[in-house]
Design a protein around this nucleic acid. Structure first.
Lengths: 279, 279
DNA sequence: CGGCAGCTTGAGCCCAATCAACGTCCGTGG
DNA sequence: CCACGGACGTTGATTGGGCTCAAGCTGCCG
């Protein structure tokens, strides 16, 4: 949404996966020909803020692994307005929604400097190529994204601006902290306009809500982009005793013990469970 | 949301897949042990309107193939209100969003008499079991659902009640016609409340919009449930020169010819491309 | 120091939610 | 067959949250 067209993944950018810092956590690891066995099929790229990984209509013959940075996907209405569909963070797979198609359905734009890695996925079309573990891993990512979408759909229905923004900030905090303890202090890589579009609100409303939250001492915002959640309890209360967003994975309705009762909290994000070493 | 708890898939309901009318189109076909080779692992069931396939918190160790009828998935807010996440029609896979988890995230309820078929999916967790074609097929369904969700997210953002309802009816028409020519006359299996919840509107608003659409001669409604789209052109105009919903797959932005330019229209639905024989 | 993109703040209005009442359909039982 | 009851649907009146329009402000870059 900033620069013109860049070649998505040119031939020059190939890289050996075994040299990749994110090797261990890469969900594409067990694809054959992905470079993990030594050949050079994985294509890696660095993007500046505002650059596109792909645009609507580009060939959809790859899946993208986000190694570092942040992305958004969006669609353009015929009127030309951008609707943000989702945000992506390190460890996420981007472009899953276009896997069966020949063309990308959405556009993916870097919100900050990014390192991404693309695996050409003709292999997925061909019968024999991708290994089952790799397929299962991709499927797991897809499933996680479906959960994320379900939560978003629930959030957008009948929830006030305040609830949406609070839920958004809480989820961001969860997703940005790779593990356990939510990082209560983080940087918003996206603009107010992006947030507004994502939450189906007007920019002004997002701004007002943030101001209100600040005035009530629940959060603090420094220099427009750094957010600090001062009272996460109050935030959760605003979202509404684990409301529709979180309710999806907060364990409401879980009849039996163990296992998922904690994990699903993390499952909301698209973020992979463990994404250690990328930086 | 109607009867009490039913055992999701009891041991008595097993059936030989080769006897199943939907055999050829079944996306679970190539799972080993799914009964397709003769053993009896696929579990099939008939549901009445109002019965649940599964509920939030049930074991999520299966994926469900909908052979006939219609389903909705929903989540309950702590306050107990139901938020409809999605509708399902013959050929769809239900429960993909819970695949990585142990427990179902959503509840799935029959909107009409249904025939469903469940495949226990421990196989997906184990390394070697599911065949790659089967995994790819499931992945394709997941991808299609992600597209559907993206379209929904776009539809719920900044679209008026009229646009939402019109888009909903048009998409229903598309999904219900298994192939090509949209069926302009069909039955709403879901209640106004379901539609309202799905579209994030109040029941009264849905009702009012339907009345308005009828008065302007764009649609006709007989006996509350049978819808007839009289002027699909006008409907599309309301949605807004292929607006945000359809815009996702209407080909806007497709730079090159061929292939997807027609297909994506169908890709919006969760419905599989070809679901012939189920009735 | 300007310039510009992004952000905030204010005033007014409008669409859809809410509340309340009525109508309709359909199954059940007399 | 009709009467009853409950779920579902419609219609009307009112209200309020968030959108819109319109300035003004902030922080960042050249």
């Amino acid at each position: 949404m900033r620069n013109g067209a860049e070649a998505p993944f040119g031939p020059g950018a190939h890289e050996r996966c075994r040299d990749c810092r994110g090797f261990e956590d890469c969900p594409l690891r067990e694809f054959p020909h992905s470079g993990h066995e030594g050949d050079v099929r994985a294509v890696s790229r660095t993007l500046e803020r505002g650059e596109h990984v792909f645009r609507t209509g580009d060939a959809a013959d790859f899946v993208v692994f986000l190694k570092s940075g942040a992305l958004k996907t969006y669609t353009l209405s015929p009127a030309g307005e951008e609707k943000v569909i989702s945000f992506y963070f390190p460890g996420d797979l981007v472009g899953l929604e276009s896997m069966g198609l020949r063309r990308q359905l959405l556009s993916a734009e870097a919100l900050s400097p990014c390192r991404v890695c693309a695996l050409p996925c003709e292999e997925l079309q061909d019968a024999g190529s991708p290994s089952r573990p790799a397929l299962r891993r991709v499927l797991e990512h897809a499933s996680r994204r479906l959960r994320c979408d379900a939560s978003m759909l629930a959030l957008l229905a009948h929830r006030s601006a305040e609830e949406r923004v609070a839920a958004f900030l809480l989820e961001l905090a969860r997703r940005l902290s790779d593990r356990g303890d939510p990082a209560l202090r983080f940087e918003l890589k996206m603009t107010r306009a992006d947030i507004a579009s994502y939450l189906a609100l007007a920019v002004e409303t997002v701004s007002r809500v943030l101001t209100r939250l600040q005035e009530s001492g629940v959060i603090e915002i420094e220099r427009n982009r750094r957010v600090c959640i001062l009272d996460s309890g109050a935030m959760e209360a605003i979202v509404g005793t684990p409301a529709t967003g979180p309710a999806l994975w907060s364990g409401a309705g879980l009849r039996r013990d163990s296992g998922d009762s904690v994990r699903p909290l993390n499952a909301c994000g698209t973020s992979a469970p463990r994404v250690g070493a990328h930086r």
